[in-house]
Structures are given as C-alpha cells and as structure tokens.
C-alpha cells in the first residue's frame, strides 16, 4: 500500500502542492487527472522520491520513500517519465537492460537471467522485434512501449507513469494502458498514472483523483469524479457525460468551449 499524507511542496517559494493525501492499495490503478500546471508531475516526482516534500510523508507499506537508499527505492518503484530523452546509439535491448540496474552491484554486469527478464518485458509490450533497433530510429509509439518495457524490467511493485499516452495514437494508447493494467493486476502491484484523457482514464483506472491548485479536488470511482459539474469547475469546460455502451464508464464529450462563439467562421 502506497500512502501519501498531507504532502506539501513549493518551487523556490511558489507553492505547487498544498496538503494532498491519498492511498493506493495493492493491485489498484489510480488515475491522477487535472488541468495543465495543476501539480501532477510534481506529485509523481514526490511519490518516486526524486523530490523531497517540504512537509508530509510518502510511505510504501509503512516505510518512508525518502529513507530508502536509491538502489532499494528503484527496486520498489519504477517510473515512466513524461517524454524522456533517450540516448542515441544504444539499442532497445541495451536500454531495457538498464532497467536491471537496481539489482546489479558495482562490479556486476547483466546476466542471462537479466536478459530473460528483459525479453519477457519486451514480449509484454510487443517490442521484442525491435530489440536490436537503435533508440534514435524508433517512432513515438515504439519509444513509449520501449520505455514501459524498461520500467517493467525493473520488476518493482509500484509503477508510476507520467502521461504515458499523451503523444500516442488510439491503438498505441489502448495497448499501453492494457499492458499496465494486465501486468500490475497479475503481480498485485500499485500503479499511479497521470493522464489527460478522462474517457480513457475512466475506462482503465479503478479510481481517479482530480487535482487542481495543488489540492485534491475529488477522489473516487470514475463515475463519482468524471461529472459535468466537476469538469466545469476544474477545467472551465462545458461537457456532456455519456455512458460507455460496453463498460458503463463515463465518456466525456465536449458540448462547447468556454468562448466558442458560433459565428467565428473566419478564424
């Protein structure tokens, strides 16, 4: 269980998070949604221990994330950063094997066993055929699947993803979300994913947390969080909520934007 208690953080005096609390159970997928600049990325950096909070705690099964040594933390928490820069010249397999770093000592190199872990991670995200490809030759969808494979190779119980599908087309988006759900469900992992697409978030996440201004505005089931009223308040957009014919989850359809004048033909 991942617990965040009354966490606060400011960048050089400008408060970004003002007391935020939530918990994610094992096997659960929590979606973090909110407008640009609402503090999603900062929250994820605090959860993964890259930043230290000004106040409050992040604990995993009762142990403070900040107290863990970096290698130990990397065995507990794997991260898919937002739009990572991948180094030129390395192959896909090279990169995925870097996910094994937390298990390797200073004098150790990857073993056949690590290669097996890397191979099965590549199978999961269907990038095995790209193993020998150079990272700078990948398409956007391939890059993202490779980065997710690297996080899976880390074999950490907690998986944190920062907008993993923002730049992907429909089929790749569904593919990534399916893999995350499937793998984390299988190994009873804790997952936190920040995303923008409320419809997809509702379909794949067990619970959603909508944040705004560094605070938790509402947390609960997709039906409780994704309502026309909440979206008007937080995003300032007027939408219509439909029911998904198969899953029954909320589907967000814009009705009109805040300033969408009908007679604006010339723009």
């Amino acid at each position: 269980m991942l617990e965040v208690t009354d966490i606060r953080f400011s960048y050089s005096g400008r408060p970004v998070l003002n007391g935020l609390s939530f918990a994610v159970a094992t096997g659960e997928l929590l979606g973090v949604v909110g407008p640009n600049g609402s503090g999603k990325t900062t929250l994820l950096k605090l959860v993964t221990g890259v930043l230290s909070p000004d106040a409050g705690d992040v604990t995993l099964n009762g142990v403070g994330i900040i107290d863990l040594r970096s290698r130990e933390r990397a065995r507990q928490i794997a991260v898919v950063p937002q739009d990572p820069q991948l180094p030129e010249g390395f192959s896909v397999l090279d990169l995925i094997l870097m996910g094994r770093n937390p298990y390797l000592g200073l004098f150790q190199w990857e073993s056949k066993c690590d290669l097996q872990v890397a191979n099965s991670a590549m199978e999961y995200t269907s990038v095995a055929h790209l193993a020998g490809r150079k990272l700078d030759e990948l398409s956007g969808g391939e890059r993202q699947r490779v980065v997710v494979a690297m996080a899976l190779a880390q074999q950490a119980p907690v998986l944190v993803l920062d907008e993993p599908i923002s730049n992907l087309d429909m089929s790749h988006s569904l593919g990534i979300m399916n893999v995350v759900r499937c793998v984390q469900g299988e190994r009873k992992g804790v997952s936190v994913v920040a995303m923008h697409d409320l419809t997809l978030a509702s379909m794949f996440c067990d619970r959603l947390m909508m944040i705004a201004g560094g605070r938790c505005f509402v947390i609960g089931s997709p039906q409780e969080v994704v309502t026309a009223d909440n979206i008007r308040q937080i995003y300032g957009a007027s939408v219509v909520i439909l029911d998904h014919p198969k899953t029954g989850t909320p589907v967000v359809v814009p009705s009109s934007g805040p300033n969408m004048a009908r007679d604006c033909h010339q723009c």
């Binding site: 950096k45 993964t48 290698r71 794997a78 950063p81 180094p87 770093n101």
Partner: peptide, 10 residues
C-alpha cells in the same frame, strides 16, 4: 538518460 531518470534507476 537524464539525471532524474538515472536516479530513479538507482
């Protein structure tokens, strides 16, 4: 990888 990413890998 960048520094934050390397940190997250231990």
């Amino acid at each position: 990888l960048d520094e934050d990413y390397a940190k997250q890998l231990g």
